[in-house]
């Protein structure tokens, strides 16, 4: 049984450059929002500069259900959406 003291799930949104909007790129676990932001920077942007990151606790997200059906794995109706060179290769070598 997972420990209650496991780190909660955060969803990560990245705006990779000006002119675009934030896009959902995945999720990660962190004990709190500040660490989530830091982890997201490491995992989802490899610390590129000029990238904007949002992290949101998955539990804070409200989602619509397709066709008003609750997902069978969330029996409580109010439980929310959880949810996904430089190398020199000799000439003529293919598929690399």
């Amino acid at each position: 049984m997972p420990d209650r003291r496991d780190w909660p799930l955060f969803e990560v949104f990245v705006r990779s450059r000006r002119g675009l909007s934030h896009a959902h790129v995945g999720s990660l676990h962190a004990p709190d929002a500040q660490m989530a932001l830091r982890n997201a920077r490491d995992v989802y942007t490899r610390r590129q500069e000029g990238v904007s990151l949002w992290v949101v606790e998955a539990a804070a997200i409200t989602a619509s259900s397709p066709e008003e059906k609750d997902a069978f794995f969330d029996p409580a109706g109010d439980k929310i959406y959880r949810h996904p060179t430089f190398y020199d290769i000799p000439e003529g070598v293919e598929h690399l």
């Binding site: 780190w7 676990h29 982890n39 490491d42 490899r46």
Partner: peptide
């Protein structure tokens, strides 16, 4: 201690 930390320490 956590996979996210493997990534951070790797960086």
């Amino acid at each position: 201690p956590q996979i996210e930390e493997d990534v951070a320490l790797g960086n």
